[in-house]
Nucleic acid binder design. Sequence first.
DNA 1: AACTCCGATTCTATCGATTGACAATACCCT
DNA 2: AGGGTATTGTCAATCGATAGAATCGGAGTT
Lengths: 338, 338
Amino acid sequence: MQHVSIKDIARAAKVSHPTVSRALSDSPLVKGETAKRIRQIAASLGYRPSAIARSLATKKTKTIGVVVTSIADPFIADVISGVEEAANDSGYSVFLANSNANPDREVKVVHSFHERRVDGILVTASRVGALYVPLLSQLKVPIVLINNQHPDETDGFIYSVTIDNIKASTEVMRHLIGLGHKRIAYIGDRGGFQSDIERLAGYRQALAFAEYPFLPELVVHGDGKPKEGGQAMERLLALPNPPTAVFCYNDMSALGALRALHGHGIKVPEELSLVGFDDLAIASYTSPLLTTVSQPKQQMGRMAMEIMIKLLSRIDSKTNIKVEGELIVRESTAPPKS
Amino acid sequence: MQHVSIKDIARAAKVSHPTVSRALSDSPLVKGETAKRIRQIAASLGYRPSAIARSLATKKTKTIGVVVTSIADPFIADVISGVEEAANDSGYSVFLANSNANPDREVKVVHSFHERRVDGILVTASRVGALYVPLLSQLKVPIVLINNQHPDETDGFIYSVTIDNIKASTEVMRHLIGLGHKRIAYIGDRGGFQSDIERLAGYRQALAFAEYPFLPELVVHGDGKPKEGGQAMERLLALPNPPTAVFCYNDMSALGALRALHGHGIKVPEELSLVGFDDLAIASYTSPLLTTVSQPKQQMGRMAMEIMIKLLSRIDSKTNIKVEGELIVRESTAPPKS
DNA sequence: AACTCCGATTCTATCGATTGACAATACCCT
DNA sequence: AGGGTATTGTCAATCGATAGAATCGGAGTT
């Protein structure tokens, strides 16, 4: 016999199996002494309750499905580590699934989570298919989104944790403007994500506040990865009057931009200032070290899971939590040269 | 009623529930026509079988527990993405757990996997506690280790996927020796991992082959992270006769070493050559770009999961798979200056 | 017409826990 | 001692699926 069951314990303790069940769950219906004896026997047999059987009876699995677009993305990996930690602390386990932003896979993931009867779903994704969240919400379990606030607030099952992009973005701009920059470009992500839209909004707000004109040619788009970040930078450099500072949607884009600048022999920050966003570990190892916005990634993951657990315990919780980013000034920004 | 069960379908189709079960699993015991009708009804009711109930009956969960020391480690994150992909392709789901190399947590993880009755366990860890694998193996499920071959081969449940460290390491050394380096240092990881031991062995073999002396003062140790990698480099630079080339246990150490060199104004590769190991994404964005050994990280994860699935299907599989690394020569290595 | 055989279903037990209803003690009081 | 109340424990049903045994109706055999 592979596993020890409560019936085995009952036999050994000469009681019935429901008594064992009660004893192990500290029910007041069992005499303390008996309960103690039963617990000892259980321990000596190496009993581990079957979560499967328990889930079937209670209709709760203590299991959370976590979908990511890519675990290889260092931002997401950090978030997940917070998620997992918070889950484990509360006795929840995490099913990890990768969607690769691929619709077929998304459908598969939803089915898998459905069949496994997860108690809730967490989505960490810079890029979520528009139809994906409605699909998920069919399962009628709470959903918490990380960094991807759902624009449609009608469905009461959807919660979110995001960073205050507009605030962080205006702070970056204040920093650059404070250094004396006037021609500041923005390298965005053409995916059309909430976070990109908000960071761009912050960029425009700051320009407006400083009474600088908004120049459409200074806003270019990549895909949030180094390669296209570099291409975007190339386009900026090809302008008749290139910018003196560039604010990138994320560190990955900034990395590509930095390489492009190296390629042109343009010195950062002496000739051009560069700012990223996310504060990935790598930002502390580029040369020059990258000025960027730090997000409390792990903590965001933890918060998201804590919201989830609260919801499942029927404690209400705030629907949308906004955390603050922090501008980390390193070496890639300086006053413009002339 | 939250979920549709086979009984609901049975009622709608006016058959018994076991017939439904058989129809849905393509059993030849059900007339094709009936089966078709049942499947249609199931689909129209949006039926999703309960993996919970099925697991209870079949004693298989189609679930694999994956333990990592840290998902935030980019190497591990890549491996996991391969693991998850392979699992999903075969209908398996992955429980992700973080141990943080913390013994208490390791115990908790084992219990959690036990209670959830995972079919198998995968361990991806640069650093695994010595007592941990024996603890895991108590569960009597197959275990596949990634990059952490278990020295004790007695237990038939343990399989592994590793890179051929000795070969890769001698290749690195051949590259450096071929460039003309004679004083080559090694920055290792004091954790005492199999991979470090093997890479060091390759280092010594190559020295012996070239008939260069092995100088103990040229072998220093960090902890596999940038900070201590930098400190290790400082120790090498403080030697009366510093090395002209340094081979690091991993890219993270090399990153720290690179920063230390920057700090001293030492030019890489003109004045000192530096080699890493792992080919993390970051290695393509340092300056100079890092020469390193690429490991097929994602593929290793995939292979490990494929071994697992074979084992669970009672197909035998090789016990230990060794994959080959590939030396990627970038910009951080060059002939010594004089 | 009785009998076997067989495909198509249905019946029923099972997996391992939980839980409400009920039975059997023990205990206390008058 | 008898009745009532706690206390302690047992019974039996349930969750949703699987799987082996039993059943049913009809065709084929003699």
